[in-house]
Amino acid sequence: MKTCCTPPRPAPAPQGTQRPAQGAATGACIAKDAVPIPGGLALVGTAHSIFDADGEGPLRRKKLSEFRMASTTVTNTQFRSFVKATGYQTDAERIGDSLVFQGLLPEGTPPTRAVSAAPWWRVLPGASWRRPTGPDGPAALPDHPVVHISWSDATAFAAWAGGRLPSEAEWEHAARGGLGDVRFPWGDDEPDDAAFQPCNIWQGRFPHQDLGLDGYRGTAPARSFEPNGYGLYNMVGNVWEWTSQPFKVRSLKKSVKAAHEGKTGFKLCKGGSFLCHKSYCFRYRIAARNSSSQDSSTSHIGFRLVFDGVSDIQRPQ
């Protein structure tokens, strides 16, 4: 199994203990934009697994209550409001570095250390949500997904905003957009490097050439491309999304256990990113799964919030 495009932080660091107070205004804004996701029997997984070792199968059903999901991932503008109100410091800022894809490094960036299992990832001092490609790169774009966010950072923001991270079942149910057992939020038609680019993924030869046929090299605005049937944007591609739950694969096979050795405490990510390509990381499918350590941060991991029922939606008077 190829190493996926979300490596763990090379040197794990202790989790932060910051517990910021709730931010009603920003939470209400995100909640107002959230869309209702009907409850019922949700489909989870697939009967046609691509990466068996990731635990993609089998296809199963799980009963869910109605909830609401933010139509986009959390943006840099929203995260900036959180930081301004609380003084919160992300894990990347506290540790002093984060992982940046080599193709995004600004010209003139000093030599960087590679991640051994995936050398296209570079450990870059000073990279954070504020400047996603490092201190010599441009400031984060306001309407793009916030990145370089660890699971601990995402849960801190969620608590402040009055929401939470979705479970895997909630995420998949929402991503299907009411279409049932489909591979992608729009159906089963597969993106390609020619004429069909419904999401922000890689086109070309990974990791050396991104043709950018979908219009982007790197992140796209959080509200871009066509939404799915529930009104959710970029449920696959653009950035990986943290979920609330641990990454677990139930298998007795030695090969599977070996593939995930050392992942105790890792959290589950869904959706793929702008770095995914079928030839390398065919994980921009709804059932696909990935994992990373709680303190890991990269230039392609973000998150979105869910809210429990209508009672959590604070609407302006």
Results as ranks from 00 to 15, higher is better:
residue 29 C to Y: 13
residue 78 Q to G: 11
residue 3 T to V: 09
residue 15 Q to M: 13
residue 96 G to H: 02
residue 216 Y to F: 15
residue 41 L to Y: 09
residue 234 N to F: 03
residue 251 S to L: 06
residue 255 S to E: 15
residue 111 P to C: 03
residue 306 V to Q: 00
residue 295 D to C: 11
residue 96 G to E: 02
residue 82 F to Q: 11
residue 18 Q to R: 08
residue 86 T to C: 04
residue 146 V to Q: 04
residue 282 F to Y: 15
residue 292 S to L: 15
residue 180 G to R: 01
residue 123 V to H: 01
residue 271 G to S: 04
residue 76 N to V: 13
residue 24 A to G: 00
residue 129 W to V: 01
residue 134 G to I: 07
residue 128 S to R: 04
residue 166 P to N: 00
residue 125 P to M: 02
residue 111 P to D: 07
residue 94 R to T: 12
residue 248 K to T: 10
residue 92 A to P: 02
residue 106 P to W: 00
residue 246 P to G: 07
residue 200 N to A: 04
residue 310 V to T: 13
residue 83 V to F: 05
residue 53 A to E: 15
residue 301 I to E: 10
residue 93 E to R: 08
residue 58 P to Y: 10
residue 194 A to F: 12
residue 124 L to T: 08
residue 243 T to W: 00
residue 212 G to R: 02
residue 103 G to N: 12
residue 88 Y to W: 07
residue 6 T to K: 01
residue 128 S to C: 14
residue 211 L to I: 00
residue 22 Q to H: 09
residue 13 A to C: 11
residue 308 D to K: 10
residue 97 D to Q: 12
residue 246 P to Q: 05
residue 27 G to D: 03
residue 4 C to A: 13
residue 180 G to H: 05
residue 196 F to I: 07
residue 80 R to H: 08
residue 177 G to H: 03
residue 58 P to T: 11
residue 59 L to F: 08
residue 258 A to M: 14
residue 78 Q to P: 05
residue 216 Y to M: 00
residue 265 G to H: 09
residue 317 Q to M: 13
residue 168 E to R: 08
residue 270 K to F: 06
residue 37 I to M: 04
residue 205 R to Q: 14
residue 157 F to G: 06
residue 204 G to W: 11
residue 90 T to K: 01
residue 187 G to C: 09
residue 120 W to V: 09
residue 131 R to F: 10
residue 134 G to Y: 03
residue 129 W to F: 05
residue 52 D to R: 14
residue 254 K to I: 10
residue 219 T to F: 00
residue 94 R to I: 02
residue 300 H to S: 10
residue 54 D to G: 01
residue 152 S to P: 00
residue 178 G to A: 02
residue 202 W to K: 04
residue 86 T to W: 04
residue 209 Q to A: 15
residue 97 D to C: 13
residue 103 G to K: 10
residue 17 T to G: 08
residue 283 R to Q: 14
residue 310 V to H: 09
residue 95 I to A: 06
residue 102 Q to F: 08
residue 298 T to H: 12
residue 106 P to C: 01
residue 124 L to G: 00
residue 117 A to I: 13
residue 255 S to L: 09
residue 93 E to N: 06
residue 239 V to K: 03
residue 109 T to V: 01
residue 269 C to H: 09
residue 240 W to T: 05
residue 18 Q to D: 14
residue 179 L to V: 03
residue 138 P to N: 04
residue 225 F to H: 09
residue 204 G to V: 11
residue 281 C to G: 04
residue 192 D to M: 03
residue 224 S to L: 08
residue 233 Y to P: 07
residue 20 P to F: 03
residue 51 F to K: 12
residue 62 K to M: 14
residue 287 A to N: 12
residue 23 G to Q: 14
residue 227 P to C: 06
residue 207 P to Q: 04
residue 100 V to T: 03
residue 204 G to Q: 06
residue 199 C to L: 14
residue 205 R to P: 00
residue 174 A to C: 07
residue 223 R to Y: 00
residue 12 P to G: 01
residue 191 P to V: 07
residue 141 L to D: 11
residue 169 A to L: 02
residue 189 D to Y: 07
